[in-house]
């Protein structure tokens, strides 16, 4: 803890302020009593699937693709999750089995 408690408090509030600004801004720009511009309606429809693609890639960003284990634990467990979800459509099953499989892979198989 190299900073004093007060300095730490100020830093934490600075981080929180930045985070909250990114949350509040769209709602301030487009107040709810006015109709939304068509471009924004369109973006509201295509952004969720597009951002979901980005988030999945984000989760794989630290995987080792070009050295051992060649991102195999991530790819195998990730494929298992997608396959289970397509097959059984049970969120908890897909995530539970996928996560357990990944833990076994990183702890016992690809060590």
């Amino acid at each position: 803890m190299p900073l004093t408690s007060w300095q730490t408090l100020v830093m934490i509030f600075a981080v929180a302020l930045g985070a909250q600004l990114t949350r509040v801004t769209p709602f301030l720009l487009f107040p709810q009593n006015k109709p939304l511009p068509r471009m924004i309606v369109y973006l509201g429809r295509v952004l969720p699937p597009a951002m979901m693609g980005l988030l999945v890639v984000y989760c794989f960003k630290d995987a080792a693709f070009f050295s051992f284990p060649f991102a195999l634990p991530e790819l195998i467990a990730g494929a298992a999750v997608a396959a289970l979800q397509l097959w059984r459509r049970n969120v908890l099953l897909s995530i539970g089995v996928g996560t357990a499989l990944y833990m076994v892979l990183v702890q016992c198989v690809f060590v």
């Binding site: 597009a50 991530e74 997608a82 397509l86 996560t99 833990m103």
Partner: peptide, 27 residues
């Protein structure tokens, strides 16, 4: 990895709908 799995599940469900596939693949 539970969080990664959550995002994969949600992406899979989004892709069930045909209209969502192009933006998802683009992402």
């Amino acid at each position: 990895f539970a969080l990664t799995a959550l995002f994969i599940v949600l992406l899979t469900d989004q892709m069930r709908e045909k209209d969502n596939r192009p933006p998802a693949l683009m992402g």
